[in-house]
Design a protein around this nucleic acid. Structure first.
Lengths: 347, 347
DNA sequence: ACTGTAGGCGGAAACGTTTTTGGATGTCAA
DNA sequence: TTGACATCCAAAAACGTTTCCGCCTACAGT
């Protein structure tokens, strides 16, 4: 089976009518439609997507921009996979496919994005890991390409995003630790240029000040969100003159490195030092001692993200009437042993 | 910038010449080519992919078929992400994009695949999790669609695949355990319809028999390769009259559940029971006691997979002259504490 | 009997490329 | 002067689809 032309000839019908029949358009007799559908099924005809895209000006493909370096992938852990899975769940309903767009490490992400958009290979984009000032957001907004982002940004005013409730996490973590008597609380975070890095630390600072605890910049450890980063964070904490009695981790994978370094130093987690983590993966539960952790469903986050995107695309808006924008995704605390102790009040 | 037509008008040149200039074809004066390239750069022209695909009959997109159920994704862990990353590294060199094709849980994978191929939305396919008899392999072979698989299969005789060295793992695991005095060795595996499940157990059986140990089917535990599967596996092992002194896990994530159940039963891993795992993720090292594990680089596996595919596509074959097929990927043993003991000889 | 209307359909244009064909120009040798 | 050949380019065909336009028929209303 080559194309719609052969199908039309086989049926002795014009190709226009065949197209209308297949696409459920009006102006086709019901009997004709049945014949066409039956013949298409029998001959295994499926419309060529390139021809269709060319004519309609839309590709039915959503692009997902990702960092492609080996390091980035290994650290991303299952985050992408989880979110992607949720995205696909939403997209499948509309016969949309998901195209992974890995920006080469040696190319400017913005240029790469511009090229992909100009190629018209995608109808819309998903971006993640937004910077505090993110040129990609500007670009997509100006080019009027529908998009949604994982993570807020200051760029381009109002745009569709889904983000994790970092404020809530920082706040509740501080609250929980303060309630147990802690006064010196460390925190790890990525660079403040990454929006997450900024927001997380700001919320932590506000929460501290709300409890009358002064903010001490030396307790903010900027390291990579990886096992190695955790090791280094522990290392830096140990250097401090006035060590904290608790530490908040932005990513639970860091706990592996952090635990190791602290154990080397003879510090007992859950007795000498409290630890609270974030973004539970199965491994978090299996640390010794088990890690208190704020967790969520990546799959559900992906679904929300997909719906947010589609709600901002004219062709799909109707399916998601209340699929607004700007979702702040809540997290749930799963208590563990790593912070299950109280500290005596200090001077 | 709309299309090549506008670019041609702007240059006062025919569109045919513009196209040839941009694509590096001959029959273009060098000065003209420079002018065209400069104008394209200045006006930000990039060829529309739909038009190009339609004309050329190829899309520059490689499809990656995946199972999309939430459960499948959660258990797949970072396998896909790691392999995907390697794939993209290879594809990026040829400006190929990777399209994720999640087969809906309620659709026959073969039908889904057939539709995607008929739509001509991809030039080639990657499939994984091959069955021992896999209709997808038949389909793709017959349709002459270039493809590569993760995992062997009996279907369709000779086709391009990359697989892990399960034989080697089973063999070396048995060897290692026998050398430590074990005679009753259990093993976990997926259903024998999945090629992995068959090959793994067969290799284990042969390795046993080579050491004069009779094969006992009751020691083969068929469970899901997940944390829950590990828990269940431990449960079944405990039911056995004549319990094994060692067990080989097909996936290290299972260790989490297995450890838990065995600890509940008061069995000391690394003393009463030896455990060896497979496919190291960071968490494997952090079990207590640490898990002996056969590991590999998913990224490198992805690269090999991508090269195997391209070596089987006429348009790219020249780039991978020795990029043969049928790679059996080796694994490396990282010793841990979970099997670090010897067992006294039994009657 | 004539007109208006609706349903059903065929024909053709259009989408943006690449590629083929052939024509124009210039150069060189016979 | 003519023919042969190379170089450069314009024009048009082709890829497969959707959609616009208009024609035909049947039928109802006048």
């Amino acid at each position: 089976m080559k194309g719609i032309r052969q199908l039309a000839e086989h049926l002795d019908i014009s190709i226009g009518t065949v197209s209308r029949a297949l696409n459920g358009k009006p102006d086709v007799k019901e009997e004709t439609r049945r014949r066409v559908l039956a013949a298409a099924e029998e001959l295994g005809y499926v419309a060529n997507q390139s021809g269709r895209s060319l004519r309609q000006g839309e590709t039915k493909v959503i692009g997902l921009m990702i960092e492609s370096s080996q390091e980035a992938v290994e650290n991303a852990d299952n985050f992408f996979l989880g979110v992607t899975s949720g995205l696909q769940h939403v997209f499948a309903r509309h016969q949309l496919d998901l195209l992974m767009l890995p920006c080469p490490a040696d190319e400017d992400p913005c240029e790469y994005l511009k090229r992909m958009v100009a190629r018209r290979v995608v109808d819309a984009m998903i971006i993640s890991n937004t910077q505090r000032v993110d040129r990609r957001v500007d670009l997509l907004s100006r080019a009027k390409i529908p998009f949604a982002a994982v993570g807020r940004s200051l760029s381009a005013g109002n745009f569709p995003w889904v983000d994790l409730d970092f404020e809530g996490v920082a706040e509740r973590a501080v609250e929980r630790l303060v309630a147990r008597g802690h006064r010196r609380i460390g925190i790890t975070a990525p660079s403040s240029e990454v929006n997450l890095g900024y927001v997380f630390v700001e919320s932590y600072r506000r929460a501290l000040e709300r409890h009358g605890i002064p903010f001490d910049p030396s307790l903010v450890i900027r390291v990579k969100s990886s096992e190695q980063g955790g090791y280094q964070a522990a290392h830096e904490l140990l250097q401090l003159e006035d060590r904290p009695t608790a530490v908040i981790l932005i990513y639970e994978l860091m706990a592996i490195g952090l635990y190791r370094r602290l154990m080397e130093a003879g510090i007992r987690i859950g007795r000498d030092l409290a630890v609270i983590g974030f973004r539970d993966a199965p491994r978090a539960r299996f640390l010794q001692p088990s890690l208190s952790c704020f967790r969520m469903s990546l799959y559900d986050l992906g679904i929300a993200l997909g719906q947010t995107l589609l709600a901002n695309m004219p062709a799909y808006r109707a399916f998601y009437p209340d699929g607004g924008r700007n979702i702040v995704w809540p997290l749930e605390l799963v208590p563990g042993e790593s912070d299950a102790f109280e500290v005596e009040a200090q001077a």
